[in-house]
Design a protein around this nucleic acid. Structure first.
Lengths: 151, 151
DNA sequence: CATATTAACTTAGCGTGCTAACAATATTTA
DNA sequence: TAAATATTGTTAGCACGCTAAGTTAATATG
């Protein structure tokens, strides 16, 4: 007879709970500069490489094409980005930061520092280091480049 | 002159990324038994204590009242729960598992084991232990009962 | 007792994710 | 070259979070 699972004792359960709550934290902080969490992640990618195609953005963000489509509509509405048809490929659209989109980075960075502080506040230094490494591994699982290590 | 932040080097960034990916994993597994991730979390609370009020459910799930309202509508539609007006308080609604709602637990547990396995697969045993503890601390941050420890 | 406030819940509307289905363009293959 | 297949992006519609605003019922205050 299988014992009932104590869901609360699984990493999956805790991870799901923490991550939901955590998304909220980002929303709260970014709302102060009239941004949503998803928009911030798009901007981060564009600050890295401006002018990339939507499909590339989707891969970097690890989301699907329709999600990118929606987000870009929102970002275009508040004048942070513009989309352009490419000449090489009649299907593709490239995404470009506006001046406003470039400038807002400083604001986002300020807020991000607050988010990070709030995030790691309850953790000891060693916990922080371990969490960072573990999250990198977990991220690998979901983005493909998985590395299994034993001990 | 402040240096630009490397967002990717923050715990917050990684946590947010893992969040999204992770929610997807739960969705995928639970879709096999025609459930959505949010519904599973509601059921878990009800398996603990059936017949509680919506407001209590909201507190346990750490979500707002409208979210509970929406989720319950979905769960009621697929006959996993029923809501009832309470006699004591004319405003309150209590939430009750149906027979189907009670029985589906076994199915969810099976799937949850898969989710957990997938979740912790890339982690060493020591990583798993540390992650579990760290997540518990982080969860405390967002649910109120915060414990700061130093080292 | 009457009024004001608080509490529980719903509805409307939005952002962020998804899938399914579609249009348009590029590429492969026959 | 023509036809079949891939790719890029959009639209429609859903789940799951939120806030704001409204209803109804309970409680506090005058």
């Amino acid at each position: 007879m299988p014992e009932p699972i104590v869901f609360e004792d699984t990493v999956s359960y805790l991870l799901a709970k923490v991550t939901t709550a955590y998304r909220n934290t980002i929303e709260q902080h970014m709302a102060k500069i009239d941004l949503h969490s998803g928009q911030v992640f798009v901007l981060i990618e564009l600050w890295h490489q401006d002018g990339i195609k939507q499909i590339e953005l989707a891969k970097l963000l690890n989301v699907k094409a329709p999600t990118v489509s929606n987000m870009l509509r929102g970002l275009e509405k508040i004048n942070l980005i513009r989309t352009k048809k490419t000449t090489k490929d009649g299907r593709a659209m490239t995404v470009h930061l506006t001046e406003k989109g470039k400038k807002i980075r400083a604001e986002v960075e300020k807020r991000w520092i607050d988010v990070e502080a709030e995030c790691i506040a309850p953790l000891s230094k060693s916990d922080r280091v371990v969490l960072f490494e573990v999250l990198k591994k977990l991220r690998g699982t979901y983005t493909g480049q998985n590395v299994i290590d034993e001990d």
